[in-house]
Write a protein that binds this DNA or RNA. Sequence first.
DNA 1: GGCCAGGTGAAAC
DNA 2: GTTTCACATGGC
Length: 314
Amino acid sequence: MMCEFINQVQKYYNHIYLIVYCSKSRYNINMIPIPTPPTLLIPRRHFDMDITFNCGQAFRWRKQDSGYIGVVGDHAVICRYDDGNVAITGGEPSQVAHYFDAAADYDAIVASICTSRDPWLMQAVQSGMGLRILRQPHWETLCSFIISACNNIKRISGIIDRLCLTFGKPAVALNSGITGHLHTFPTPQTLAGLTELDLAPIRCGFRAKYLIDAANKVASEQINLEALQELTTTEARKVLTQINGVGEKVADCVLLFSYNRLEAFPKDVWITRVMRERYGVERRDTDAFALQRFGEYCGVAQQFLFHDARSKTQ
DNA sequence: GGCCAGGTGAAAC
DNA sequence: GTTTCACATGGC
């Protein structure tokens, strides 16, 4: 009975009440917080939070104290450094493990892309150590990179915040106190049928019509994002580019950051500049060059080079 | 105040 | 097939 009581108290209040009897008629009640056990631990050397959350692959993680808070699935999640690990608390364990790609072997991936001993990449890997590619939800990633077109990362984050606040729902809070202001990403069904006027409050400019087209095509099942997992990367890219506002670059970002196609090599203005200035390679030749130089995980190499190029000008 | 931003689609060559 | 331009907005 007492155990059940304590379990309930822990479940709902995350505290245990310690009752100390001083005498038969007098007692003290002390509350002892019980730390919520982490959902997942990832070695710190494979997960640098500042780099991973700010490298332009995800736009919803916010620094709070010494950690980051965000949303995985419908749940608020907090990441903190804890000794030699990143401790991730909250969320459904299987969803969290998938989102952070817990099974990935980053020693092997980094070793693979560095096989050619390319000096620019070696330097970029050195400065970006701890960067890991996330496996974000397909729909959220698709919308995020539609919004990214001709935009900067700070503003992309702001637009996505307003999108979630306006059309999402409050995230399931952590019982250790993270609450209210975090919202889920709105579903395709919620955005389908909206007008550009409806999206005016999020101030995404000319991209509003693209978001609505994506929502209509996904909600009507004209495009099945889950089914893309079964296709080759080339086939999946072809399907994604059926959506207005999704060209080769946006499709590659979705494939890399959501479908874990680590061979996808998005070519934005930064990476196009890097390829031309450092390697003398023009945009149309980049895919073949990247595969030959960096191998089957060249998308990870792309992200290191992207992070390195940006960090040199900020 | 002007340049630029994790581009794309359409029209003009 | 390649080049050019408009598309909204705001950070720096």
